[in-house]
Computed example of a mutant assay.
Amino acid sequence: MICKDRVVVVTGAGRGLGRAHALEFARQGALVVVNDLGVSASGEGASGGPAQRVAEEIRALGGRAVADCSDVASDDGARRLVATALEAFGRLDVLVNNAGFLRDRMLVNMSEQEWDAVMRVHLKGHFLPLKHAGLHWRAEAKAGRAVDARVVNTSSGAGLLGSFGQGNYAAAKAGIVGLTLVAAAELGRYGVTVNAIAPAARTRMTEQVFASTMAPPAGGAFDAMAPENVSPLVVWLGSAGSRDVTGRVFEVEGGRICVMEGFRHGPAADNGARWDPAELGPVVTGLLAGAAEPEPVYGT
């Protein structure tokens, strides 16, 4: 019960990872706002059914939950989402940004609409709930009320290393890492930590791409691709015990948790003046010789 009585919002919680997070938060004593617009895996249509079903699952377990079908990638929807938590439970302690869908395409075949749709749901759909939750927590801190809040964003290995055929998704997920770092720096003064995860699990977004390697194992063996494997870290990051952890990105798959180390200053050369282009061949070659090799892009 490490999140007992903490009020948690999980976006995209109607299925897959979001559903697993919402259920585990409830098992750990949290009061949960289950947000889901109910769209298809490609972002089409809308239905209140998925959010309602997960909220009902939580209540059947003896927990407390409300469903919310706001569009978190719209300013009004994100504002309503935060208001739902405050109206239902009187406070907000944790925001888990998880909503998303795919429009995979090779770069030269990708339409502007496919780019914009993925950027909107993933990147804008992280920014706006974070903005409105941050406004609430800032107001609480300025009013002299103690804030011990958490944000857990959802990036991806695609955003950290790239992913063949997913230029829009990889760019959005990389943007989420940058947003996480900035939010951690800006909101820390108000008692808010902000971290991100890069999960690998069997969901609607991955089951077709990785069908041959993500099938559930037979005979009751450990299912390394079950979305429930990711949720324990998300719940811990949402707990009071994680207050000293912020601005970090964790890769999570099966029973493995890895702290990711992003861009860091590597080998450098300083000429003390402007370089001549003709000089730079051996300089760059020398720098690269002393630098770590980049990890390969997924799918290559």
Rank of each mutant, 00 (worst) to 15 (best):
A99V: 08
I58H: 06
I257Y: 08
R64C: 00
V297R: 11
V96I: 15
G157M: 14
P227I: 03
F222R: 04
D75Y: 02
G241R: 06
L233F: 03
H122C: 05
A184Y: 04
A198H: 06
E293F: 11
E293P: 13
V34K: 05
G255Y: 08
A158D: 09
A224E: 11
R53G: 05
R256F: 06
G188C: 08
L128I: 11
N195D: 05
G29S: 08
V194D: 04
E251I: 06
N229A: 00
A55V: 01
G281T: 15
A174R: 09
D36C: 10
L17N: 04
G254I: 06
V245Q: 08
T180H: 03
M214R: 06
L179Q: 12
V66K: 02
S40F: 09
P294F: 09
V284W: 14
R79M: 06
N153P: 14
N271L: 14
E293V: 12
M1R: 10
P50Y: 02
V10A: 10
N229T: 05
C258G: 01
T180K: 11
G220M: 03
R138N: 01
V259S: 09
V192H: 05
Y190S: 04
H136I: 03
Q208V: 12
G38L: 07
S111D: 06
V230F: 06
A41T: 10
A215Q: 14
F164V: 07
A139P: 00
T246G: 13
A22I: 10
A41V: 15
D5H: 09
G90H: 08
W236H: 07
R103L: 02
A30R: 01
G178T: 09
G262T: 08
D75F: 01
G157Q: 08
V118M: 08
R27A: 13
L160D: 02
G12R: 02
A141N: 07
E87D: 14
L280R: 05
A99N: 08
G125R: 04
H122I: 06
M1A: 15
T84N: 07
E140Y: 01
M214T: 04
L102C: 10
L187Y: 11
L107Y: 02
P217L: 11
D68L: 00
L135K: 12
A172R: 00
F101M: 10
D36N: 08
A240I: 01
P282W: 05
L81F: 14
E261Q: 15
S212R: 13
G157S: 07
V283S: 09
